[in-house]
C-alpha cells in the first residue's frame, strides 16, 4: 500500500484515527493515519447489524412473556449463558434456567443483585425491559 492510497473513508471510531503502514514516495515504510476503510467498515457494521437483530428478537420474546428480562440484558451485552455465568460465578445451566420467566420471578434478591452489579444497572432495571431495545450501534461519521 502506498502512502497516497491510505484510505480515508468514513470513520467508525468516533473521529479517532488509526495508523497503517504504507510506503512513501521514496519506497520507505512510514506510519500513516487513516480515518477508516470502507471494506473494514462494511464488515464491522455487518457484525453490529447481527447483534442488533439478535437483541431485537430477544426483546420481542421478553415482551411476549416467553423469556425473562435477563435474556434481554444478556443479549444486549453480547453474552451467552456460559459467558454471563462465568462473570457471576454460576454454571451455564443455572443461567439458562434464569432465562425462563417463571424461574426468574422467583430469584432471590442476592442473586438478582449479582446480575445487576455485573450489568451496571439497578435490580429494578434488571427486572424490566425498556420501551424499545437499547443498543449502541456505531454510527458512521462522514
Amino acid at each position: 500500500m502506498r502512502k497516497t492510497e491510505v484510505p480515508q473513508d468514513a470513520c467508525l471510531l468516533e473521529g479517532q484515527q488509526e495508523v497503517c503502514y504504507a510506503v512513501d514516495e521514496n519506497g520507505r515504510y512510514v506510519l500513516a493515519p487513516s480515518s477508516g476503510w470502507e471494506p473494514a467498515n462494511i464488515a464491522n457494521i455487518q457484525a453490529w447489524e447481527l447483534i442488533r437483530e439478535q437483541v431485537a428478537a430477544v426483546f420481542a420474546a421478553v415482551r411476549e412473556g416467553r423469556k425473562s428480562p435477563l435474556a434481554y440484558h444478556m443479549a444486549r451485552h453480547q453474552m451467552d449463558p456460559a459467558l454471563l455465568g462465568s462473570y457471576v460465578g454460576l454454571p451455564r445451566w443455572r443461567v439458562r434456567r434464569h432465562l425462563r420467566p417463571a424461574v426468574f420471578t422467583k430469584l432471590k434478591p442476592a442473586l438478582l443483585e449479582r446480575y445487576a452489579v455485573l450489568l451496571k444497572i439497578s435490580v429494578a432495571e434488571l427486572c424490566t425491559v425498556p420501551e424499545r431495545p437499547e443498543i449502541v450501534v456505531p454510527r458512521i461519521d462522514e
Binding site: M1, L13, E18, V19, C20, Y21, A22, Y29, S34, W37, P39, A40, I42, A43, N44, Q46, A47, L50
Partner: peptide, 28 residues
C-alpha cells in the same frame, strides 16, 4: 456465508493489524 466472510475481513483489517492482516507491518 456472508457473515463468515465479514468475520474474516474483520480479523484481517479491523484496527490493530496495520492493514493487510499484518503483512504491511511485517514488510516494514
Amino acid at each position: 456465508a456472508a457473515l463468515h466472510l465479514g468475520h474474516m475481513i474483520r480479523m484481517q483489517e479491523e484496527i490493530g493489524t496495520g492493514g493487510g492482516g499484518f503483512r504491511f507491518i511485517y514488510a516494514a
